[in-house]
Design a protein around this nucleic acid. Structure first.
Ligand SMILES: [Mn+2]
Ligand SMILES: [Mn+2]
Ligand SMILES: [Mn+2]
Ligand SMILES: [Mn+2]
Lengths: 227, 227
DNA sequence: AAAATTTGTTAGAAGACTCTAACATATTAG
DNA sequence: CTAATATGTTAGAGTCTTCTAACAAATTTT
């Protein structure tokens, strides 16, 4: 028997739209059609018609030629998908021995599994982690999320000691790059010097006395002050 | 970005057809269109067109008005889906504390995740189990499966001591029924008496001195001789 | 303010998967 | 062997998700 999704549930495609909209909404409320198409890698007309569809389902607010936003119902639905995604990533790293650079693609598929019990069980087995392997917060069972207030390393000045708490983005390439520099979450870092010309930073951490990182990289290293 | 399936891979729908065909092929080679439609809960014309599609992909052998069968390529593809399904079920039971009656629906969705690494990792973490929680054998990475030669309990006579090794089917209702009788895989059973009228059996096992089971149930209890 | 550019919409179509109604073939019963 | 029944196929359509081409509105530049 083909296991079909309940009719009142969002399809896998709809879920991906909601999740993309949710991610793009961080720090602002409204999102353009074009931003969504770029994020999802589909054409503008495709997004346009899907947005109309999500509007009839009460998941997004939208008027012709205006930017769109999630309704409260849509926001919660999206947060619950993000919850599944991040719990999965954490489970794969903590309980199954995957590297933080390997888990996103798998979680992208697992996040659509319709069994809250599976994810609540992961949560329980990990003793209710607050963040995923990349430092992003995990929404609770009600879709509530605690926005973390970490700052990019690039904002700090020479001599400052900080701890790596999260990443601004977590592409496989970036994660592999950080692996190659032995830099992981929780690592304490001291800013040894800053190149005025291009903003690159020389850092000292663990057994690495002076590693240079470009400004772009330092903007994606989210840290908290230490000491 | 919408994570799209590679073009050369079977869709989730196609995978479900292959798996159903595979299950229906146990003990015979050829399967009717109608058997497949019944198993998948879709109409005959739907199966008819999907079968044509699977034929062009070299996954099934089929001629108009004739029964169909899997090609070697189709057989292997199906076995690998079954592998994912059964490894998932075993992982959910062994490593995540689910009951054997809870795992099928979840595995039905997880079996379509395209990451051999995820399933090979489950396999490794469980130390390469040979069977799933219902006693069905798990195909290896090459799609090879060792057909088990257990016999239905109904075939045996009074006084025989056997061990429950697998189930003929594993519907949630049946599994809950077995739970209610405290009957699980590995349990040693002795046949105390058989009712000639309807073939029902009185069994003794563990701390249950005389439990009666209908013939239908005993046909679905696959056992091996003991002592 | 007009022109150029960017952004968004509509129209029309296609592929994947599904259905029902109607028709064709094969099998089974008399 | 014919008639009845069961099984399989074709035709035509609908939903979902996607596309391209053409057009419209909004924004930015000059
Ligand atoms: Mn991720
Ligand atoms: Mn996804
Ligand atoms: Mn199963
Ligand atoms: Mn399935």
């Amino acid at each position: 028997m083909l296991s079909q999704r309940r009719k009142d549930m969002a399809s896998q495609t709809e879920e991906n739209y909601l999740k993309a909209l949710y991610s793009l909404s961080v720090g602002k409320i409204e999102v353009n059609i074009s931003e969504l198409s770029a994020a999802l890698n589909v054409s503008n007309p495709t997004v346009n018609s899907m947005v109309k569809n999500l509007k009839t389902k009460g998941l997004v607010k939208y008027e012709k030629y205006k930017p769109l936003s999630l309704t409260e119902k849509g926001r919660k639905a999206a947060a619950l998908i993000v919850r599944k995604h991040r719990l999965t990533e954490m489970f794969l790293v903590e309980k199954m021995g995957f590297g933080w650079e390997e888990v996103h693609e798998i979680a992208e598929q697992l996040e659509h599994v319709s069994s809250s019990k599976l994810f609540d069980r992961m949560d329980e087995l990990m003793d209710f982690p607050l963040v995923d392997p990349h430092g992003s917060p995990i929404p609770d069972r009600n879709g509530n999320i605690s926005e973390s207030a970490y700052e990019p390393l690039s904002k700090f000045s020479v001599g400052r000691k900080v701890k790596l708490a999260a990443l601004g983005h977590s592409s496989t390439e970036f994660l592999k790059f950080l692996n190659s520099r032995e830099l992981s979450l929780g690592t304490e870092i001291e800013i040894k010097s800053i190149e005025p010309y291009d903003g690159s930073m020389v850092l000292s951490y663990q057994n690495r006395a002076s590693e240079t990182f470009t400004q772009a990289v330092c903007e994606s290293l989210l840290v908290e002050r230490v000491g």
